[in-house]
């Protein structure tokens, strides 16, 4: 069967994917240190360790926020695979059918994945929730940062968080979300590897090149220009 290459992930999608990835890695490392400072500097060999960890955490937080806002913008102007609606397949009847199909495939009950080119229905559901979770991290993170200065713009914009929960609960949520992101990360890597292996659709390389591969059937409803 003839296999086609098609542009699925446009440049901004790939760009924000990788800036978000880098930001999350840096945020997790520095955040884990801020939660539990496992390195200490008793002899002042590096006398501003926590200061640096926090400074880097805050900068990475800004990067993540910009990445999320940028990706949200692209969800309105990007191609069909980048659209906002793809992240909420469970809102349509057709989407539910797709989710069911993917579930059956994952549980070894179906031989083939329902045809798709962007994300499959379960993957896009997961990414939808991930974006919400990252949004939660950005809001709670900036709220906690804003506490350092009650007159700051950051606090004025995010202080409402503390009307909902006191700062220790906000901290607990901010910290626990990191573990949920870790679990997501494992899922993400496994699913990427598995679908690349089983479907041979070039998933693994697609976030670098932007192209995925499929037979004519899977492109049946696809405009080859990716629009």
């Amino acid at each position: 069967m003839r296999r086609l290459a098609i542009k699925v992930w446009e440049f901004p999608v790939r760009l924000f994917h990788w800036t978000n990835f880098l930001a999350i890695v840096v945020l997790s490392l520095t955040g884990a240190y801020i939660h539990w400072p496992f390195l200490s500097t008793p002899n002042s060999a590096f006398p501003f360790l926590m200061g640096w960890a926090r400074a880097i955490h805050f900068v990475a937080g800004w990067v993540l926020m910009v990445g999320l806002v940028g990706r949200l913008y692209w969800a309105f102007v990007g191609n069909r695979y980048a659209r906002l609606s793809t992240f909420f397949p469970y809102l349509t009847r057709k989407g539910w059918k797709q989710i069911w199909g993917v579930l059956r495939y994952y549980a070894f009950l179906a031989r083939r994945m329902p045809s798709h080119l962007g994300h499959n229905a379960i993957a896009s559901t997961a990414y939808g929730f991930l974006f919400l979770l990252l949004g939660f991290q950005v809001v709670t993170g900036f709220a906690l940062l804003g506490q350092a200065d009650l007159a700051s713009t950051v606090y004025r914009v995010t202080g409402w968080v503390f009307d909902i929960a006191t700062s220790q609960w906000v901290r607990l949520g901010h910290y626990f979300a990191m573990w949920v992101i870790f679990a997501f990360f494992i899922t993400h890597i496994y699913a990427m590897w598995m679908s690349d292996l089983a479907e041979r659709d070039g998933t693994a390389g697609s976030m670098f090149s932007g192209y995925k591969y499929g037979d004519l059937e899977s492109f049946a409803d696809t405009d080859p220009r990716g629009r």
């Binding site: 070894f108 910290y175 626990f176 573990w179 679990a183 496994y190 292996l197």
Partner: peptide
Amino acid sequence: TATKIGVGLTVATAAAFAAHGVVKTTQL
């Protein structure tokens, strides 16, 4: 603590996919 639950969640996820991976690679 949140750490205990978080580690549990991460390990459970990894274990679930390790099991899935064994079945999948055998199938392939």
